[in-house]
């Protein structure tokens, strides 16, 4: 049996607000198996980034994790002290952020920043550090790595900066890498290059968790996908089943929206209404207010994740268990 790099079980993240508590992450369970790329897709505010931050131990007050387990290679991350977490970040789990400008220190040379990660997490002798960094720069496709080593972030273009971030994220060979909207801030032609680079990031004993709102990016990179809506996972499936046979009305709506744009339909399909405020979620299915087939039951009773096929789960009352 394949083993999982990351296992999240029933994770709840809660933020206090003026209208009581809100849950940007609500009962989320997911797996990242070894050697696989797993995606979380959803629109802004669905909780996908917050899930990633929870794994990184980066939920800041007043937000907090109230329930659930996060295990990295079997190790329970919620039991770690802040100090233990610090030594974990960068070495065993690392993150590639969306904004390549703000996630690098502007007054430190690019090479030194990557070196810093090595110095913190490994005992590679000082004399070899520079060579290691230049090697990794070459591996992520940075041209003239010796020259770039001495550049400050503002002297690098967006694509190069993102490559430096990726280099920084992978230099300690972490078991899990999380990429939060890794190409959103980049131009299309550069995005294509970075996506191609990221396809090769995963090896047999590591995992990659990609978070994106862009179905194109997800389709390009992922093996398995979780669809999130208003803090909950509403559908999970392998990539091909999800795109060929989406089941949840929200996933369908999303696919239609993207599909009709590509087909150049006369009138584009949309999902009516807007994402509900997390403070005003209905007791039942969070999507019921926008769903064409929503019933009273949907409004009152929260559907569970129903297995509709091998490895395909859907959170919707309209689904039938496979085999029934």
């Amino acid at each position: 049996m394949e083993h999982n790099i990351l296992e999240i079980d029933h994770l709840h993240v809660v933020f206090p607000s003026s209208k009581g508590e809100t849950s940007p992450v609500n009962d989320v369970s997911l797996r990242v198996p070894a050697g696989k790329t797993v995606g979380i897709v959803g629109e802004s505010g669905c909780g996908k980034s917050m899930t990633a931050r929870a794994v990184m131990g980066l939920i800041h007050a007043p937000g907090r994790i109230t329930e659930g387990e996060i295990r990295l290679c079997g190790r329970d991350l919620r039991k770690l002290s802040e100090k233990e977490y610090c030594s974990l970040r960068g070495s065993e789990v690392s993150m590639i952020f969306q904004e390549p400008m703000t996630s690098l220190n502007p007054v430190m040379k690019a090479g030194h920043q990557v070196e810093e990660v090595l110095r913190l997490h490994t005992d590679i002798p000082e004399s070899e550090l520079k060579q290691r960094v230049i090697d990794i720069f070459r591996a992520v496709g940075i041209t003239e790595p010796e020259k770039r080593y001495n550049c400050y972030p503002h002297e690098l273009s967006g694509g190069l900066r993102q490559r430096v971030i990726i280099a920084m994220a992978m230099i300690c060979r972490p078991r899990l890498m999380i990429a939060d909207e890794p190409t959103t801030a980049l131009d299309v032609t550069v995005q294509a290059q970075i996506l191609r680079l990221m396809k090769d990031l995963v090896s047999d004993d590591t995992g990659l968790l990609v978070i994106s709102h862009d179905l194109g990016v997800i389709a390009k990179l992922c093996d398995y996908v979780y669809v999130m809506y208003a803090g909950r996972i509403v559908e999970e499936s392998d990539i091909f089943t999800l795109f060929d046979d989406p089941q949840h009305p929200y996933t369908k709506g999303l696919m239609d929206a993207v599909g009709s744009l590509r087909r150049d339909a006369e009138v584009l399909s949309t999902i009516p209404g807007v994402v509900p405020s997390l403070a005003h979620l209905p007791a039942g299915c969070s999507f019921c207010l926008r769903c064409e087939n929503g019933s009273d039951r949907c409004e009152k009773e929260l559907p569970g994740l129903i297995q509709t096929g091998p490895g395909h789960k859907v959170r919707c009352h309209l689904m039938k268990e496979a085999g029934q």
Partner: peptide, 15 residues
């Protein structure tokens, strides 16, 4: 530019 757009179709993701 046109080729660089990622296609939302996993069947066509080969580079």
């Amino acid at each position: 530019l046109l080729n660089a757009v990622p296609v939302p179709d996993p069947h066509r993701r080969e580079d």
